[in-house]
Design a protein around this nucleic acid. Structure first.
Lengths: 262, 262
DNA sequence: TGCATTGGTGAACGCTGTTCTACGACACGC
DNA sequence: GCGTGTCGTAGAACAGCGTTCACCAATGCA
């Protein structure tokens, strides 16, 4: 209809007010855009400029709503827990509930690219996360874990989950970036690498090489999780009757408290 | 003596040759300088330009010896294991040996600022690390762990060590950067924060708040380590007679292998 | 003595997080 | 209705980053 090259007349320019169409910039919209950029470009590609571009906005506009890039990451981390639900602690099933929580966390982490790396750099003590931490602690204490074990179990579990997912994501993205090779080819390469080791010097590596390569991430996650939960369960006190079997520690409690660092 | 603004005459410029004093640039010297910068400025301050400045050398000179910053980090990671010694695996004491290895690793990681963060981003499969991995695997298998547990135990352990040290370093540096407050003051702040939570909504947090704050890092590390080792030990098969007590798993082996992801 | 090769130099490119100044549209009081 | 003031955005700028490129000087070899 209108010629594209024609200059816009002054009245047209005066009437040009997409003001109602211009949605105001908020923290929520910024976080939304940041997640869009994250999923598309990964954490290394997540820059303030790209987030601003995603919103069709100048970079400096972001800084009116967000102090820092660090604060933006923190906001993303908090948003990430929206809708997370932990069940009411059931002392009979605390181990299953704990595992279910871990599995759920892993799935959530995997749903956003590089989210595990973001999670690793954050401390889970923001106001909206505290209720979840509280429920996790309730779960552990309901299982009969001594308080000093409970105090470290949360750290232990989230370190495991974040670390595992971060590692599996790195493997995943490192070899789908250079998309010439498929996953099975990569696996064969790794297998070949292990197989090329001198057998006399690396007998144990060779013995488990296939297991390290073949097992699915799901299985490895589940096994590591079970190891962790068994270790925790070995500290459970029989105050509430445990799973039905003996959960006393297999070895003597010789844990030296060691010296304080300060 | 000489006027500072005078241009240097050509012969003076021609005689300028500190050549004999100039030691040649090598990868080793670059890694040395990188460690110096790391310890002084931390990982965030470790830039190629600063490493070059440490060596009184142009930035581009580094790239003749090192492909990448990533490669430099990898070289640092490898250098980091120089002189590491793992004992010959003793099936009788495999749990103690494993713990000793973990303690030693933590001390090493703490000896260079932010080294844990570097370690987290690396894969332990460089040629000079393989012998150590091999010995670790030998240790675990000597303890009677099934191969599928051994295959994941190394990951589990190093994830724990790296994660723990990274976290403790962050706490350490975050509050010694703003050096106005001492550690005890920080601790009081945290204690106050926990104490300010509504007791009806956060009974479990309050119950263990003191433990989370008061326990030394050494003790928390040791406890987490013990939890891990107990979990591993619960999988040990009695082929070599274990520590003297029953090490059978406390709960039934209901670990679902789950579905492979590809 | 001349030449080629090696290895460092300095400038440049494109990117980053962050800050500062200025402008333009809105809401309000007269 | 009109000036005025405030708020939020735009755009340029700064310092620093990893990396690359064309040049240049000093070395060893013929």
């Amino acid at each position: 209809m209108t010629e594209p090259d024609m200059p816009t007349p002054p009245w047209e320019r005066a009437r040009r007010r997409p003001a109602p169409a211009r949605v105001p910039l908020t923290r929520e919209r910024i976080v939304d855009a940041a997640f869009a950029v994250l999923d598309r470009e990964g954490l290394d590609g997540l820059s303030m400029r790209r987030v601003a571009a995603e919103l069709d906005v100048a970079v400096s506009a972001l800084y009116a709503h967000v102090d820092n890039k660090d604060e933006l990451l923190e906001l993303m981390y908090r948003r990430f827990f929206d809708g997370l639900h932990l069940p009411e602690p059931d002392p009979e099933r605390w181990q299953d509930q704990l595992k279910e929580y871990a599995r759920q966390s892993r799935v959530r982490l995997l749903s956003h690219r590089d989210m595990a790396r973001i999670s690793m750099g954050q401390m889970p003590f923001s106001p909206e996360l505290l209720p979840h931490v509280e429920k996790l602690l309730a779960l552990l204490r309901a299982g009969g874990l001594p308080d000093r074990v409970t105090a470290i179990a949360g750290d232990l579990l989230s370190t495991y989950i974040d670390g595992f997912v971060a590692e599996e994501s790195i493997w995943q993205s490192r070899y789908q970036g250079a998309d010439t090779k498929s996953w099975t080819e990569i696996r064969d390469d790794i297998r070949d690498y292990f197989a090329s080791l001198p057998p006399d010097r690396f007998p144990n590596m060779l013995a488990i090489a296939n297991l390290m390569v073949d097992e699915s991430n799901d299985y490895r996650f589940e096994l590591g999780l079970d190891i962790l939960v068994r270790g925790l369960a070995s500290y459970a006190e029989p105050t509430p009757p445990p799973t039905g079997l003996d959960t006393r520690p297999p070895t003597g409690p010789d844990t030296g408290p060691a010296a304080g660092e300060s």
